[in-house]
């Protein structure tokens, strides 16, 4: 069983999204540790990109702040190599296609494997374009996480059947609980692979409702917003936030 699969063995999963280097890598490390201590099951480490089009502007601003501080793909790799020694939960990278492509996909994924990164989330590489990075991910045993959306409709089954690691259901404003239920039914009919749903506060449903139907939740914007507010003092508020969500998840 892979580390990612193992993370889904103890109830509903909480995946915490943290932008590397906002406001600095020391704070990133402290926030990751605080998240893990308070129950985060998977950490989604965001390698900054200048123009992240799939996420809301709050995350883009965090990405730009990190880049302005001189964060690069190489400095994130060095950082994670050290972090890995202190953290045992699965780590996945979240970044954009051009960051992986420009580094050289083979070299990028090989480095991920070397430093102990378990998966890769690339929101601008949909199912139809997965051959861009899938061969390298299979070669080095890094899961290329499959993205889903309520707008995926007739493509849900095909995406679910081919999924590796886990499925990531992107946030989509105004999504109704009924749409989520239908989508999850299709997912369950087609795969045994777990599915987490991104919760960023714009959806028309509650944590408890989505978590009941899925295998866990991923939170990005709320954590990035906390870190923007608290800066180098973010570890404690992030930890408290994770603890609160995790308690709700345990109660299900």
């Amino acid at each position: 069983m892979s580390k990612l699969q193992a993370a889904f063995q103890n109830g509903k999963v909480f995946m915490a999204f943290i932008t590397c280097g906002d406001p600095d890598l020391q704070t990133t490390a402290a926030a990751v540790k605080a998240a893990v201590e308070n129950g985060a099951d998977i950490i989604e480490l965001n390698i900054p990109f200048s123009d992240p089009t799939a996420v809301d502007p709050v995350i883009q601003e965090a990405n730009i702040r990190a880049l302005q501080r001189g964060i690069t793909t190489d400095s994130v790799f060095d950082f994670v190599r050290e972090l890995r020694k202190q953290i045992t939960v699965p780590l996945v990278f979240s970044t954009y296609a051009n960051v992986v492509f420009s580094y050289g996909a083979d070299r990028f994924v090989r480095t991920c494997a070397e430093i102990g990164v378990d998966g890769l989330i690339v929101p601008d590489v949909p199912f139809e374009e997965r051959q861009e990075f899938l061969p390298q991910c299979r070669k080095y045993g890094v899961a290329l996480i499959s993205m889903l959306a309520v707008t995926s409709r007739q493509r849900v089954a095909a995406i679910a059947r081919e999924a590796e690691g886990f499925l990531y259901l992107m946030g989509c404003p105004g999504t109704r609980e009924q749409e989520l239920t239908e989508l999850m039914d299709t997912v369950r009919q087609n795969t045994g692979i777990p599915c987490v749903v991104c919760l960023n506060g714009t959806e028309d449903y509650r944590l408890k409702d989505v978590a009941t139907k899925t295998d866990g939740v991923a939170v990005d914007t709320p954590i990035v917003t906390l870190m923007a507010r608290y800066g180098t003092g973010s570890a404690e508020p992030v930890g408290a936030y994770v603890r609160q969500i995790k308690e709700e998840l345990r109660a299900i």
Partner: peptide
Amino acid sequence: KGRFGIHGGQYVPEVLMN
């Protein structure tokens, strides 16, 4: 789909694919 040599393609978030 939508290739011009090695270029082009459909590198958009899943939300937009449909």
